[in-house]
């Protein structure tokens, strides 16, 4: 049985968010190119029946994927519903995700996605 195609992206955490992710700042992830429209974040495994893959993996998927696979503590400091909690900046290749379609941005091979917690101290 063939493995679904994947793409490699780089994820980085900053501003303290790395503390929620085992204090590891950089992750290189292999994620599926296509995901089911109502996908769970569990990566498709070889033994399960293949899901219907119809939608490109987007940042909303990535957020869920990170939460379910790499987030180690206090999920409420990272996610709120289907998106990041207020005060977290999401960057697509050094550009605010607002300019790229936010959660609907379809991930591309080699993308660098950065999650940065805005700071309040002074």
């Amino acid at each position: 049985m063939s493995t679904p195609p994947t793409l490699t992206i780089n994820v980085e955490f900053g501003g303290g968010l790395e503390l929620l992710f085992a204090n590891q700042r950089k992750y290189q992830l292999s994620i599926p190119v296509l995901i089911p429209p109502d996908t769970t974040a569990t990566p498709p495994s070889g033994s399960a029946p293949p899901p219907i893959l119809s939608k490109p993996a987007d940042i909303t998927f990535l957020i869920r994927y990170l939460k379910e696979n790499h987030l180690k503590e206090r999920p409420e400091l990272f996610v709120e519903g289907e998106t990041v909690r207020p005060g977290i900046l999401v960057l697509v290749n050094d550009t605010d995700w607002e300019l790229e379609g936010e959660g609907d941005y379809a991930l591309k091979e080699g993308d660098e996605i950065v999650f940065i917690s805005t700071l309040h101290g002074g």
């Binding site: 501003g15 207020p86 005060g87 605010d96 805005t118 700071l119 101290g121 002074g122």
Partner: peptide, 27 residues
């Protein structure tokens, strides 16, 4: 400006007619 632990951030808000504000980023 903001600073915490080993980190710092800097942003100019509301500069000129098109300049965004803090709530544009985080309503």
């Amino acid at each position: 400006g903001a600073a915490q632990r080993f980190h710092g951030q800097l942003c100019v808000y509301n500069l000129g007619p098109d300049g965004l504000c803090l709530r544009c980023l985080f309503p």
